[in-house]
Amino acid sequence: MSVQLRVDVDGALRQRPGLPGPVASVLAASRNDTLNRERVSELLLQVPGLAARLMGVVNAPFFPIGEPVDSLASACLRLDSPTLERAIIASVLLGQFPPATGERFDRAAFWEHSVGVGVIAQTLAGAIGDDRQLAFTGGLLHDIGRLLLDVHFPREFRSILRYQRRHDTWIRDAEVAVLGIDHCALGASAAEQWNLPADVIEVIRYHHSPESGSIREGATLTVHLADVLARGLEFGNPGDDTIPMLSQVAMKRLGLNWEVLRWALLEADPYLPTARQLVRSTVGAETSVSA
């Protein structure tokens, strides 16, 4: 039976606190090609903990930038605009939603799943010569809508979790049954409000609809596959204990086969402990968004 609380997502999101001012400024600066990189560096330093998180992300072995960078200034000077923007987006959002007290949703495990998806997605992207950084960032943020449900819609999210347990269903089906929308739509709406790049928004919106004709980015398909694989590895916890259908269409569109998926799992495996470490060292920093 459907509970159908149904919320006006866009209206509700507008009424919720967005990203804190300095964080929004940093994101805007990362997109501004004309802005002096020293100014970007100054803005990064204004957000507590952000510089350290950014260094953690850009120097992670699964965030491909070539040689490691040894300082914030050199990261800002050396990285090209899309790379710096994606690194900043990843660093900003990893710090915005720290683990909460209480039982309903394990945010640390959620982030572990998300980083794991990023690691596997960038491995798959590397195998087909696609954009690895976009695959990683998209993987990291693909389920951000679920986190927003936990943070901004706690009452509705409790109903979703109750529905999911009672009906032993995929959590996305529970979201639709209870709210009338899923975390993909919610996350994409929020990402639009935060002015995230269109390619990242596409990943968030369509990673569970890999057959959609609106998909332009290979990353949307690699993140779909990586999400299923990470669930199969039980790396972290996306919020439920089921596995969604792996799309054969996504595999065909990317030209992948089972052997490549097997290879990708082997390739990604050594990086997963580092991914877990990145979550431990980044999630939990100071934040202005609270439940």
């Binding site: 199969g232 590895l233 596995i243 259908m245 097997r262 799992l265 495996d269």
Partner: peptide
């Protein structure tokens, strides 16, 4: 599901 059984076997081996 044949595809999901294939995936399951792949994950089990890994």
């Amino acid at each position: 599901s044949q595809a999901m059984n294939h995936l399951r076997a792949l994950l089990a081996n890994h």
